[in-house]
Design a protein around this nucleic acid. Structure first.
Lengths: 125, 125
DNA sequence: GGCGAAAACGAAAATGGTTGTCAAAATTCT
DNA sequence: AGAATTTTGACAACCATTTTCGTTTTCGCC
């Protein structure tokens, strides 16, 4: 486990929302780090493979990452203005997805669920 | 409404799963059409703006399209092998997403839900 | 049918996020 | 210390998508 990867992990942890690889690279450089973009991508890939961060895609196809509090399966409620994300759990959805899959004879059913909105704070502005 | 756009729409309609722009381009060329890649992209953009097709992103960030039977809000159960998609509705999820958003003070809540699995036919193989 | 304006087309170039290459630098092992 | 291994980062390569721009087609109108 290298220092660089730790740096990326920390940059992610200190942020409350989803960040893109390019964002993180910019953050790290701004903090004086001499890290390279390639390394940021590699670190994110490794962290994501290890299941230590969640990944999803923006509507524009950009990959965004987030270090989550829990490693168990969960979803996110993301503010579309400030990108802050709240981790949410939904036994309801889990059950629903499994049922729907089973009804149609599908096996190995998984699902992706993301909820977007404008958070209370950003709504006020 | 041009002929080209119709061709793209039809190429989509005759397919039961999600197809990428490049896939459709290949299909159309294989059928002898002299359509350009640019036009395929433009047609898909237009159709998607008009709400006539659904768009989502693969894990690799590629945009995939599908002409759906209903124009109302719905989700998909997609086979991860043959990419066939079944349209599904879920009052349960709709309600859940709205509730979760409201509980955290979010406004203008929307959501994306996709369910993946291996369809009955592909499971057999 | 002919004409001109406007919309649609398509080839090629530009863009932008992401991945591959490879030599240099850092770390580990002995 | 010295060799072997891993990590790193500058740069080039990729690839889906978008932009550019000159050409072609379509449409409304005479």
């Amino acid at each position: 486990m290298s220092t660089r990867r730790e740096a990326v992990r920390e940059a992610l942890t200190t942020s409350s929302g989803f960040r893109s690889a390019q964002d993180l690279y910019a953050d790290l450089r701004a903090d004086g780090s001499k890290i390279g973009l390639t390394t940021v991508y590699r670190a994110l890939q490794a962290l994501s493979d290890a299941g230590e961060v969640d990944v999803l895609r923006t509507d524009e196809g950009e990959a965004v990452y987030r270090a989550c509090d829990t490693e168990s399966h969960h979803h996110h409620l993301v503010c579309r203005v400030c990108s802050t994300a709240v981790e949410i759990e939904g036994p309801t959805v889990e059950r629903w997805a499994a049922e729907v899959g089973a009804q149609h004879g599908f096996t190995g059913v998984t699902h992706t669920v993301e909820v977007f909105g404008t958070c209370a704070e950003c709504s006020r502005a």
